[in-house]
């Protein structure tokens, strides 16, 4: 047991007390902190950071919602209350560089906090993982093999169209040496999972079918056994879609970080 590697998750408060400055702040996000499924993504990413030896920290209990769902729903007051409070915390720790696994947090921190005085270098974990792979710091070896497995990648709107991050997630997947198959609607034409714009937090309006079902049908049509996602809300919507189609034994939904961690045996 003592030979097992132990992973640690330092907080900004710990770092400050020790007089240290982390290389990056890992912004976990609400889903990454509370959603049982997405906590596994948070853990996978934190393990990769540990394994590579990145000096990182999280805000821990000091982190709060970026305000994204409130803003998209129309509640600008609540959004700005959240944003201004978060900026005070981030600036209090002199944060310069933020990495997050949530495209909604990513978009809000990167594009919307500057207008309120919060200026940081914000990177989505797909881009960060790609950088680590390119630098040779992350090597996909020693774990599960994905060779010959069919994987399809579902573009998150807030990563793709919103911020034009199309290639990084695909390059991360390429490192797995799997068989990457594209859906017809991909990249700039990717179809939403149905969760954005605060839809995740209410029932959909009346219609013929749910958006996530439309999307999962397309994903299943590729014959992939793995649907790769890079967003906590896409994760839930796609997983629900797989269940809706009774395919949970055959098809799994994983985040990029989970796939890399699996490949590394972390």
């Amino acid at each position: 047991m003592t030979s097992e590697k132990t992973y640690t998750v330092p907080t900004m408060a710990d770092m400050m007390a020790a007089g240290e400055t982390p290389e990056i702040l890992f912004w976990v996000g609400c889903a990454g902190s509370f959603d049982d499924r997405y906590k596994r993504v948070t853990i996978a990413f934190a393990r990769i950071l540990n394994h590579v030896g990145i000096k990182f920290a999280v805000l821990g209990p000091e982190e709060t919602c970026t305000g994204d769902p409130a803003r998209r729903a129309g509640n600008e007051f609540l959004f700005q209350m959240q944003a201004v409070a978060n900026i005070q915390v981030l600036d209090g720790y002199s944060v310069k560089k933020i990495v997050t696994a949530c495209p909604h947090c990513f978009n809000t921190l990167k594009n919307e906090y500057p207008a309120l005085g919060g200026n940081y270098e914000v990177i989505h974990h797909s881009t960060y993982l790609q950088q680590l792979i390119n630098e040779g710091r992350v090597k996909v070896e020693g774990g599960e093999s994905f060779k010959g497995r069919r994987i399809t990648y579902h573009d998150s709107c807030y990563l793709g169209r919103a911020n034009k991050v199309y290639e990084a997630p695909r390059q991360v997947l390429a490192a797995l040496d799997a068989d990457l198959v594209e859906m017809k609607r991909s990249r700039a034409n990717g179809l939403c999972c149905g969760a954005g714009g605060a839809q995740y937090f209410k029932e959909p309006e009346a219609g013929k079918k749910d958006v996530n079902v439309e999307r999962i049908e397309e994903a299943l049509g590729t014959g992939a056994d793995t649907v790769a996602v890079a967003c906590p809300f896409c994760m839930t919507m796609m997983s629900d879609g797989v269940k809706n189609k009774n395919q949970e034994d055959r098809v799994k939904v994983y985040d990029l970080a989970e796939l890399i961690a699996k490949g590394q045996g972390l």
């Binding site: 998209r72 709107c157 169209r161 919103a162 700039a188 034409n189 990717g190 179809l191 939403c192 149905g194 969760a195 954005g196 714009g197 839809q199 209410k202 959909p204 309006e205 219609g207 958006v211």
Partner: peptide, 11 residues
């Protein structure tokens, strides 16, 4: 209320 703000229309 039905909008997912996915920006596909803008694209």
């Amino acid at each position: 209320n039905a909008c997912t703000t996915c920006q596909a229309c803008v694209q």
